[in-house]
Design a protein around this nucleic acid. Structure first.
Lengths: 175, 175
DNA sequence: CTTTTATTGTAGCGAATGCTACATAATCCC
DNA sequence: GGGATTATGTAGCATTCGCTACAATAAAAG
């Protein structure tokens, strides 16, 4: 009775891997299925609909993008806000984060287009990151929102090839 | 001899209108053609390729998104950085800007996926906005980058339904 | 062992995709 | 006016899309 499939998360992990490499909003059933070692037929069988699949995949991605944050940056409070920002940006710009940032921008774009599942997942991810930053912020929770918002802006700048502007923003924060 | 079509900009304007309403990254030839009162056949005739069309459309959009900025917010320097940010955000959140923001997020997403035309257009748009902010910033050009980056982050927050976080960031800026 | 029930493969449908071949109409040049 | 060039319509092709019908197998239940 509505018992969840035993290895659905295995399936979702494979789908997530494909999406992280090839993009979320342009993903289609047959390539995803191939990446997961199965068929489009079976994806529909398991999820009912592509939209439902994407919705579940977004939940999975939201968790995956939130998990491991503690491991990659231990919960130490920094000496200054500027230093925290610099450290997080350095992290976000590192190689292993790139696929997640691409997917993140897809989520944001989809949210803008009014896709409910995208928006829900996007909001949850922001919530987790906000908390993650708050724990590490010396000036307390109120400023965490500011820091995270700035970092999101930096991601945008980086995406369109204006990292210099992002760097200028970080520098301006210092003084 | 390679004389440019007389009303290609008219065509591009119609295409831009369609894309502003229905999204850039999901646009396909036949609906675009219908919106422009033509056929897919003619779009290919004029632009050669869909990719080329998108590239030209992105240039057009970059200009269109930059033009009119002066009109909508006269080049007055504000009393404080916080006030400037508040005013610009108010502008960006206003109804008529919504379609442009959706397209903007599509451009950012496409840039993240490595689409060169998207990235080029996105960079140009940032450049123009940066200049636009610099002219209005009381504390000079160096801080304009900071302000614009923060605003981009606010757009992201708004997109995923976390305007409260964006507002908190703006407020935090005040003190 | 047999009868359900859950899982999977094969094949394909109808729609949409970007793009092209071919023919026709309009326009320009001389 | 006639030949060449430019513009446009009509059809369609090959591919991919999400999804489904049908049948076969595998597993569970009695």
């Amino acid at each position: 009775m509505a018992r969840p499939k035993p290895d659905k998360s295995t399936l979702l992990a494979a789908l997530a891997g494909h999406v992280l490499e090839h993009g979320l909003n342009t993903a289609s059933l047959r390539p995803m299925a191939a990446a997961a070692g199965t068929s489009d037929r079976m994806l529909i069988y398991h999820f009912g609909t592509k939209d439902a699949l994407i919705a579940e995949l977004l939940e999975f991605l939201a968790i995956q993008m939130s998990a491991g944050l503690e491991a990659v940056l231990p919960p130490v409070t920094f000496e200054s806000e500027a230093e925290l920002v610099a450290r997080v940006v350095e992290l976000m710009r590192s190689e292993p984060f790139q696929p997640y940032i691409r997917v993140w921008l897809d989520i944001v774009s989809g949210s803008g287009q009014g896709l409910a599942a995208h928006r829900t997942a996007g909001g949850k991810i922001i919530d987790v990151y906000l908390e993650w930053i708050a724990v590490r912020h010396p000036e307390g929770r109120a400023r965490a929102a500011f820091v995270l918002t700035l970092i999101e802006g930096i991601l945008v700048m980086d995406a369109v090839g204006r990292s210099e502007t992002a760097d200028a923003a970080i520098k301006a924060l210092g003084k």
